[in-house]
Design a protein around this nucleic acid. Structure first.
Lengths: 343, 343
DNA sequence: GCGATCGCTGTTAACGCTATCACATGGGAG
DNA sequence: CTCCCATGTGATAGCGTTAACAGCGATCGC
């Protein structure tokens, strides 16, 4: 058993053809006669030939790498998106290169430069708030690009997501409709999407005449269940009148549930609670927690599919096809934590 | 602004030196005169030169890719490990290539073949239960390899993790010591590590004379909070006498907490509960939940560090250095859910 | 003062693959 | 019976980088 790598020419030699033909047999099988194709495939299997992606990339100027820029790997939201991305790529020829921007535009710029220099097959970026420099790089790129998780105007190329503002607005309306007169906002890691959720909350409350900035507690630190308990403790200490909380995500909502139980504040009788994203555990909680369901897995999968489709058919325009912009919507899932009749 | 890629020779031309010198300036700065080095660095920055990794890989026969084979991206456990891996790589020259084995040995074999063909700088694989084929491939590989999450005998190369058997045994002992006479086991996704946890539970219970197979409910499906509620419902329906539960992970434990609340089964008075992994929310829950803390982030980070260290100093042996085998241990964190005096 | 040595830089030749064009064959249209 | 084109295959030339060695002053030891 030789330690040496099996290359195209080894296969070619064994098959009595040129390396180019073997390359074609693997890359575009329809351009090789069927009999020869079978013979080559057999030899490839025998020798255990695996193409060298570096050589391929160098020679062709393209790679089969789809780059994905995600702000966090820990956050449940993005692990679902990631799962969708992996699900969509695992049958195809593409592989995923993950970049963790850690919510930093600067990190994103750096990663973008690195990714783009590798001539990726496509790029997935999170959100619509790229820095000017990032945006310039992306606009100059020659591969399909999908902005995910959010929709807005002026897509760089393609876009799939939903309106965080509308999602939060719907949740807030629900809180008010189920009788909250002193609604509060609890938010962590105030990234742009979170801020738009806050805006949705604020505008709906203002319109209903029940907005109070001092009932909004936020922090730049990442959201956790424990953080939810703390922020809620702060909130009730300052505002015992609070009778409804919109959390900018489910971790916080769960923390509030626990802290309320600890303080014997009945949910939903004394306090209604609504989260965001609808993580699996929201339905299982006691009481179950109302949340805004977002199609995270689908967004990840669809983003890859959009890139693959574009690659297969670049569209009528030279270069980029017509920009696709998909609004996935969201769904307010009302549960026990807001099951209260309005007075 | 030219669309053309900036290559080494562009930089070289501008600097009035050969491409090789620029390559050296970037790769081993100490072999280039300081003045020239500065000049080259300036031009690199000006031109925005980014090395082509494909060309580098092809020419040098090595890559700076560390491959990581993980059974799940969704599972909180592995997202923490992943975070550790990313944390350790983000300052260095290495990048991570993630492979999702989805708990399938066959998928793992395929991914391994692909990864190894790319001559990675190092490889991280999960667990110690590689298939014979996988093991052969890994043993034949010429890069550092770390098996993570578990320790056992006969490491392929390096290894970092803890004993799942011992962790479960400690938890079970704790359940019995805090007064459980009819302890139960609830487990999902019975992968090898989970099974060893079960073995720990079983052996400790048997030794204490309180093991009953029919009080062990398991399922091959992935663990979720909702699944925890269901399995617990099944369990109490068949065994109302159960007064303590060891869950093979925290999702299930949380589900059990919720289901117990729904059924007004007081925790810890009527039922004690212990999870595994000590996810963040265990401490925040009401009542807080006892769990076995495992150093997931540290394992991920350390695994990368072990690879980097090996790469820097291959050790005395030809090829591979002395195998490193790190037992990180675990920590039983007792909380309210098991706060009961033994009778 | 002279060869030996060191430090820095250049030249050449790959690495494994694919783009491109050239070439050979065979069949169908005129 | 030509001519043309489609089809399948081969030869050649890179892609951008690094390994390996060659060269060439300058410094050093004796």
């Amino acid at each position: 058993m030789s330690k040496e790598r099996v290359t195209l020419s080894h296969v070619a030699q064994r098959a009595g053809v040129s390396a180019m033909t073997v390359s074609r047999a693997l890359r575009s099988p329809d351009k090789v006669s069927p009999a020869l194709l079978r013979r080559i495939e057999k030899i490839v299997a025998e020798l255990g030939y695996v193409p060298n992606p570096a050589a391929r990339a160098l020679a062709s100027g393209r790679t089969n790498v789809i780059g994905a820029l995600i702000p966090s790997v820990t956050n449940n939201v993005f692990s679902d998106v990631l799962r969708g991305i992996y699900a969509a790529t695992e049958d195809g020829p593409f592989e995923v290169q993950l970049g963790n921007t850690r919510y930093s535009p600067l990190t994103e710029e750096k990663l973008l430069a690195v990714f783009l220099s590798q001539k990726p097959a496509g790029l997935i970026v999170t959100g619509i708030d790229q820095s000017p420099a990032s945006r310039r790089m992306l606009e100059g790129a020659s591969c399909p690009i999908v902005q995910i998780m959010e929709i807005g105007s002026g897509p760089i190329d393609m876009m799939i997501g939903f309106s965080h503002y509308d999602g939060a607005a719907a949740a807030t309306r629900h809180l008010i409709e189920t009788g909250s007169r002193f609604p509060a906002f609890v938010g962590a890691r105030m990234d742009p999407r979170t801020q738009r959720r806050f805006a949705g909350f604020r505008d709906v409350c203002s319109a209903a005449g029940c907005f109070s900035m001092s009932r909004c507690v936020t922090t730049p630190t990442p959201s956790t269940v424990t953080l939810g308990t703390r922020l809620f403790a702060d909130l009730v200490a300052r505002h015992p009148e609070v009778d409804g909380v919109f959390c900018n995500n489910d971790d916080l909502a769960l923390g509030i549930l626990f802290e309320a139980q600890r303080r014997c504040i009945a949910i939903p009788e004394k306090l209604t609670v609504c989260g965001f994203n609808d993580l699996e555990m929201m339905a299982a909680a006691e009481p179950s927690i109302t949340s805004v369901r977002t199609p995270r897995f689908a967004i990840g999968r669809r983003a890859v599919e959009m890139i693959v489709a574009r690659l297969a058919d670049p569209g009528p325009d030279t270069g980029r096809g017509a920009a696709e912009r998909v609004d996935t919507g969201f769904e307010l899932v009302a549960r026990q934590s807001t099951a209260r009749r309005p007075r």
